[in-house]
């Protein structure tokens, strides 16, 4: 069995009186694709935000490569090699695609005076080849905010790859993307996993996508962990079906 890259233990998070996550435990094995599903409002994005340090957790522990990270800030965690994409796609909308890619280089080992250097030619080559990988090479000099929503999503994915993360947390990567392009995106996610060796942890609403993509799936409902298993287990789990159809 692979080692766990991310280990979440008994994490709880409440906003005022609303309990978004209660006693969540899960682990994301290195080199695999893990899924996270659950009905709307079940606490998936809150859990993502807790993991990447967007807000402090109320209790529990989050470890990344064995290191406790629940007290670290967003930037520190990102520099450790754990990156997330957003449900509402976020790119640098007034810069062109190439610039979006260039500034997404890893900042793990940057020293103070590195900010006054230029990007080496290899970085530009890498940026362009990744843009080609997601199919945006032609549009690389366009202002990214003028791209279609789907293209922005692809750009955001390419930016994440540019950062050489160890693990990528994707919040609904296929939401809002034209159905005919979803297959292409699944293919690219799988290639990012197999060719670049990036561990993926994916929130997804599209059942066809997640069942196709993930090797193991966690299911949240009402802020609690409902079920865990292979795609087949999850699909046939009566509790999961009830949660989605509203039997609660």
């Amino acid at each position: 069995m692979n080692e766990s890259l991310i280990v979440v233990e008994n994490v709880s998070k409440a906003f005022g009186g609303v309990v978004a996550n209660s006693n969540i435990s899960l682990s994301v094995p290195e080199g695999r694709i893990t899924g996270l599903i659950g009905p709307n409002g079940s606490g998936k994005t809150t859990l993502f935000n807790s993991i990447v340090g967007y807000h402090p957790v109320d209790s529990g522990s989050i470890r990344f490569q064995g290191r406790e990270i629940s007290k670290l800030r967003v930037q520190r965690i990102a520099r450790l090699g754990m990156l997330r994409t957003f449900q509402q796609t976020r790119i640098y909308s007034k810069m062109d695609c190439v610039q979006n890619m260039l500034i997404s280089v890893p900042h793990r080992n940057t020293r103070f005076f590195d900010m006054f250097t230029r990007f080496p030619p290899q970085t530009l080559e890498k940026a362009e080849s990744l843009l080609e990988f997601v199919g945006l090479y032609q549009k690389r000099h366009l202002i990214s905010g003028d791209l279609s929503f789907g293209q922005q999503k692809l750009l955001e994915f390419a930016m994440a790859l540019m950062n050489d993360p160890k693990v990528l947390l994707l919040d609904e990567p296929t939401a809002g993307i034209n159905p005919t392009l979803i297959n292409g995106l699944i293919d690219r996610l799988k290639r990012a996993n197999s060719e670049f060796g990036i561990t993926l942890f994916v929130i997804e609403h599209n059942m066809r996508v997640i069942m196709n993509l993930a090797e193991s799936i966690y299911c949240l409902a009402h802020g609690e962990m409902l079920a865990y298993g292979t795609p087949d287990d999850i699909q046939n789990d009566q509790r999961v079906i009830d949660a989605y159809l509203g039997a609660h």
Binding site: Q75, R79, R90, S93
Partner: peptide, 12 residues
């Protein structure tokens, strides 16, 4: 353009 994104990408 998006400071929260810049933070999430690890920019200082």
């Amino acid at each position: 353009d998006d400071e929260a994104k810049a933070e999430a990408m690890g920019i200082h």
